[in-house]
Every structure is written in structure tokens, then in C-alpha cells.
Design a protein around this nucleic acid. Structure first.
Lengths: 222, 222, 222, 222
DNA sequence: TATGAATGAGGTTTCATTCAT
DNA sequence: AATGAATGAAACCTCATTCAT
């Protein structure tokens, strides 16, 4: 009794070790450039063994990406585990996503990279399922919070919480992608400081969602 | 008399034919999966000839992408070549970008794909220069129009036109990227119609930029 | 017990098989004309496997060449493992090199071909190291023997053994290169028998090195 | 009358220009690495035109090489156009060849490179003929001079002049080839100064050829 | 005569994946 | 469970030579 459990634990442990190795390689090289040889070497395992635990290179990539999603989720949970007003928490979510971008740039990149469907043709369904549910968890957290903002009267009742979440995310994510790869270019070409742009646009979007009564609270807080 | 000119025309024509072939292949397969063999076959030319006209696969890719940028630019020019009020033209730009997304999806994808710098290491400087200038032309057009909106008193003078353009674009582009690959998914998972989201978010952003006096004009127009 | 050893043996065996195949192709076609496809086919292996064992075509070439150097070294060792007088052994070295030229012509060619540094840019450092040390071993053997000839009073003490070795080799090697490619040509054009030329020139060089006392020994021997 | 001659002159002039261009490229890159494109560009002509004047890249290579042979021949003629004793002239030939090696290194290399028959499969018969006759002219000059040395009683009558020429050339050429590519290597590995080796070996060979009476002349001269 | 566009076979090398052990 | 040798298709690119104009 307990032997299969131990085996299971060991297997899980090995999966994590492989993921550690893959993470290092993917961070440095990206999906296309990374090779299974490099990952195997980093994991101090044979290439064959990798395939024992993950069905394809892309599955491995997704495995790492899911880690990144978990990190973001945890950061979101933490950011909203205070006893501040909901409206402030929502603001914190935005800040937190920006912090995620800054501190976990490689995960941010992986995530955006993988949105391109042409680039993952070998993903297994299981992995895709895991990925979806991780994704969903995050959206749910954000949407629920916005809903609560509505319920509490700080966000206009005309706002659809899911739509709102998407807008906030699309906007900030879009700018961050530019920050990631073209911050200099925008600075030179248009004389624009992307970080400031993001702050302003987020503020702008926030404000349009707030009820009149909420606006004053936020002003006094920030 | 005119022989070198004809030669030049023929050469340009051949470049276009190659681009046609490449476009078909890239649209279907993407940069990574497409092969020079396929493009050569589609162009009914030898592979060597391709390299006579374009220095690398990535240059060819950029060549196609620049077509897409030209198309967008032309659509923008057309959309603003009316005698409507500036503020309405700005609104049209947004609609036009959405139409571009709908009607020239593959170009839209190429463009977003190429923003990832990891994926183009073989681009020639000339081609990159062409690409940059095409890009710049579009930004300039949008920014100039916003500036005019400010000058005419319809857009708040506190708005920075470049920042404003970036915000509008980031937001719409971000949502379109989701529409492109995950429209169904968002519908199922969150019950959200992304198209509606985009319309709403654009409207929202627009509104925050308008001066009080302008708001009434727009309302009466739309 | 013994399993890793057997694996190692098999691996070494495979390396040898590949070298066998490469040798055949290089002998026939030379470095430039030989293709990895041909070698792979000759080895009845996939091209990829070749690269598993050798890093480049040039490494493979060096691998074959090192065989040739080993053969020559062994012939030299054998030629000097008699109990004849040193001075006679030195003479035997010359004869042996000529026999090497006759019996291992292709190796002789490879060796001379590879002296041109323009033609090998892809050689790995390991392989180059092996090559150098093989080369050195041969020079050492010759030089040591000449030194011994000096010590024993048969070769003049004014002779520098390394210089002497170089002179002997340059001379014979130079003539052999002509024999290899232009024996007929010299016969027709100048009525000269290159083989005889080589014998004579070697004899001439030998004689100038000998001490007076040694000359009589050699005369009585040959 | 005169028009065909002028045409012929112009054609010859164009051939020379092409050769100038080819020489520059071959000197820098060697036969294998040089491309017809580079040569065409250097010649400010189209690639097609090159083939109008020379049948193949290798013919072009030979064309350049023949220039080098002419240079050497001229240097030899000049070196022997004095009123010094024949035996001194012969010595001068050796020095001249060394000067050729030093001052026209690229020609020296071309010449030795082209001795490898595997590397010229596309040479036309005409070109090969030109090459042979240039070669022959040089050998003849040397051999004739040696013969004169014999006739004048300075070189032993047992010496065959052609054989002697070959020996002298093989020896010096062999050492020069090492000097060209491995001078450092020999210095480090064996502590040998190749230049000194060459001087010594040449001196040694000379001496063995001289009659007793001639030896004293040389001593007094050098 | 001169052009230069077109060819196309061939070059080496890479790497995700499989499978016998 | 783990290995790692083997695969083989495909990748991008080059370049001597030809030929229609």
C-alpha cells in the first residue's frame, strides 16, 4: 500500500524536472529555435525519456506556459486577497498584470506567442485542455471581481463584466506587446513613451466604467 | 528607345509574380511551414530564380507583408478622402481597420506575426527599411488626422495624438487577434460576442477623447 | 558487466564502418566532389547518422586521413624495428615512404591535398588535434632516428636532425607529387624517369650527410 | 585592311581585362571560393561575356596562372642575362625562384594548387596546351643552363641536366610550400627555421653537383 | 558582341520523432 | 522506465553555365 502512490509522486517529480529544463531552454531560445536535444541535456535525461513524459515539443511548451498561467493566477489571487474596496482591487489587477509583464517577461511572451494557431499543430488534447482551464480560471477571477464591482455599485450596471475584462486585457496586452519588442522604435518614431500610454489608457478605460459615485472614491485613493 | 524601361517593367512584373506565388503559399502555411520549393513551384520558376529577386525567404515574406500595408494605407486614404467632418473620418478609420481585418485576414495575421523579432533573423536591411517606412506612413496618417481633430476642437486638447493612435490601435488590434483565433472559444467560455466588444470598446475610447461640443455631433451622425 | 563496453565497441565499430565508406568515396572523388549523400549510401546509413558520428564532411575527411598517417607510422616503425645499423634504417625510411606512395597512393594524395588551408574551414578542433599529433609522431620518429645516426657517428654532427628530416621529406615528397600527376608528362617532355630521379636525389642527399667513415659502410651495404 | 587586326587587338585587350579581374578575385579567394559573379563584377562585365572569352572558370584560372609562369620565365631570363659564369647564374636561378615565391606568392600558390588533377576537370585543351608550353619553356631554360654548366666543366658530367633541374626544383618547391602554409607550425613544433633549411638544402644539392674545380670558384664568389 | 535572367542540380546540415534494447 | 542510435525529410541557399534577346 502506497507503492503506486510513491511511483506516481516520482513520476510527477520527473515531469517537473523536465519542465524546469524546458523552461530554461524555451525562455532563452523560443519554441522554434529550442531543440529537444538541448532540453534533454538540460534535464540530464535522454531525448527518448522526454517523449515518455510529454508527447511532443509543443506539449512541453504548453506545460511551461501553464506554469506561467498559474503564476499569474496566484498573483491575481494575492492582489485581490486584501480588504480593500473592490474597485481598488480591480485597479490592482491591472497593476499586477503590468508587474507580471515586467517580472515574468518570458512567460508573457510565451503566452502571446502561442495564441498563433499556425504554430501549434502537435499539441495533444489533454494539454490543450489543461491550458484552457488555466486560462478560464484567470478570466473567471477577473470577471467575478468586476461583477462584484457592479453589485457594489461602483461599476455601472450597463457594463458587461466579461466584455469589460476583455477590453481591459486587450488594451493593456496590446500595448505591452509593443513595449516588449518596439519600445525604442515607438520612442524614436513617434516620440511616445509606451509605459505612460499604458497607464493613461488604463486610467481612461477605468474611468468610463465607473459610476459617478465611485469616481470620487478612486480619486481619493490613487 | 525605351528598351531599358521595358526590361525594368518586366523585372518588376516578375517580382510581382513571385510575390503572388509567395502570397498564396504564406497565406496557407505561414512563414515557418512554407518552403521555398513550394513558392518556386507556385511561381513556376526555379528556386534559384527566387533568390535572384529576393534575398531570403523572410525578405519574400516581408515583400508580401508590405503589400498588405499598402492595402491598408490605401483603404485609410480612401476612408478619409471624403468631405465629412474630421471626427467622423476618425471613426471611419476604426471601421476601416475592422474591415481590413475581415477582408484581408491573412495580411492581418502576417503583420501581427512579424512583430515577433525572434522569428525574423534573415531580413535584409533594405526590406526592413521599406517595411518601416510603410508602417510609418500609416501611423502618420492616423496621427495627423487626430491632430486635425484637436485643431478643429472636436478632440480634447489634452489628448496626445500619437498616444491616442496607439491606444486605439492596441485596443482594437488586441481584440481582433482574439477574434481571429478564439472567437468561438470566447463565445462558449464567457458568452461574449467579440465583435460587439470591439465596437463597444472603440466607442468608449472615442467618447473619452471628444470635447463636450463634439459629442453631440457624433451622436447625431451615428 | 560489460554492457557499456560492448556499446562502446559497437559505436567504435560504426565509426570505422563510416570511415570505410567515406574512404572509398574520398579516394574516388576527392574532398570537394564527394558528397555526404554518396558516403551515406556507401555506408548504408542515413545522412543524419553520419553527422551523429562526425561533425562535418571535413572531419570525416580528416578521419580517413588520420588512418593514412597511422599506416605510414606503422610502416615506419616496422621499417626501423630491425637490428640493422641506424644509417641503414634511415635509408629504409626513404624506401618505405616511396612504398607508401606506391601502395597507398590515395592516402598520399589526401595528405598533400589537405596541406592547403583554404580547403578546410569546417574542421573541428578535436579532429585537427588528432591530426597534428599523428603528424608529430611521424616527424619525431624520423628525427629521433637521425639523431641516433649522429650520436653513432654515421651522420655528421653539423647536421640538424629536424632540418635534415624536412629536407629529405620535401625533396622526396616534391618528386612524388610530380610522379603522381605528371610522370608521363615528364617522360615525354624531358625524357626523364622520375622514379630514377627520386632514387638519385635521395642518394645524393644521403651522401652529403654522412660522415666519411659512414660512407664506406653504406657503400658496402647497398 | 587593318580592320580585322584592330578587332583582334580589341578582343585581346578585353581578354586581358578579364584576366585582370579574375586575377584579383583568384588571389583573394582561391579557385573554389571565387565565383564567376565576383569576377564579372570586378571586370565590369556580365557573366555571359566572361564565357565568350573563356570557356570555363578553370580556363580563366589557367589564364591567370600562365601570367604567373610568364613572370617567372622573365625573371629567369633576366637573372641569366648577365655575363657572370654559368655556375653563378644557376645559383641565381635558385635565388630568383625564392624571390618569386616571396614577391609573387599568389602565383606560386596557384601553380601548386593546380598540380592537383582532381581540381581541374573543365579545362579546355587549348588552355592546357598553352600552359604546358609555358611550363616547358621554363624547364628548358633551366636545363639548358645546367647543360652549359656541364659543358663548361663546372658541373659533373655524370649529372643529367633534366634530372638535376627536377631535383633542385622539387626540393626548393617542397620547402616553400611548407613555408607558405606552415612556417609557424614548423617553428613551434620542431624549432626549425624553414628559410634557413631551404638555403642549406639548396647549397647542399649544389655542392654535390659541382666538379672539384668549380667548387673553389663558387666559394670565392659567394 | 554583350547581356543578365534563368536554370536546377546539388551542397551541407538540422532535428522531431521512433524504436529496439 | 530509460536509453540514445537511427531516421529521413526537409530546410535554405549557391553558382557554373546556358540562351534568348
Amino acid at each position: 500500500m502506497g507503492i503506486p502512490e510513491r511511483k506516481e509522486r516520482e513520476k510527477e517529480h520527473r515531469r517537473e524536472e523536465i519542465l524546469n529544463a524546458a523552461q530554461g531552454v524555451f525562455f532563452e531560445k523560443g519554441l522554434q529555435t529550442a531543440t529537444m536535444d538541448e532540453i534533454a541535456e538540460a534535464a540530464e535525461l535522454s531525448k527518448g525519456t522526454l517523449y515518455l513524459y510529454y508527447k511532443s515539443k509543443e506539449d512541453l511548451y504548453l506545460g511551461v506556459m501553464i506554469r506561467g498561467m498559474d503564476i499569474l493566477h496566484n498573483m491575481f489571487v494575492e492582489a485581490t486577497s486584501t480588504d480593500e474596496p473592490t474597485i481598488v482591487k480591480i485597479k490592482h489587477l491591472g497593476d499586477t498584470y503590468y508587474r507580471y509583464f515586467k517580472e515574468h517577461r518570458s512567460f508573457f511572451r510565451m503566452f502571446n506567442f502561442f495564441l498563433n494557431p499556425l504554430l501549434h499543430t502537435q499539441v495533444s488534447e489533454e494539454m490543450m485542455g489543461l491550458c484552457d482551464s488555466g486560462n478560464q480560471k484567470i478570466w473567471k477571477l477577473v470577471i467575478d471581481l468586476i461583477q462584484r464591482g457592479i453589485d457594489e455599485g461602483d461599476i455601472r450596471s450597463t457594463v458587461d463584466p466579461a466584455e469589460c475584462a476583455i477590453i481591459l486585457w486587450s488594451n493593456s496586452n496590446g500595448i505591452m506587446m509593443r513595449m516588449d519588442t518596439q519600445e525604442e522604435y515607438f520612442k524614436k518614431m513617434l516620440g511616445v513613451d509606451l509605459e505612460r500610454v499604458m497607464q493613461k489608457s488604463m486610467a481612461m478605460l477605468f474611468e468610463t466604467m465607473l459610476t459617478d459615485s465611485a469616481r470620487q472614491k478612486v480619486v481619493s485613493v490613487s
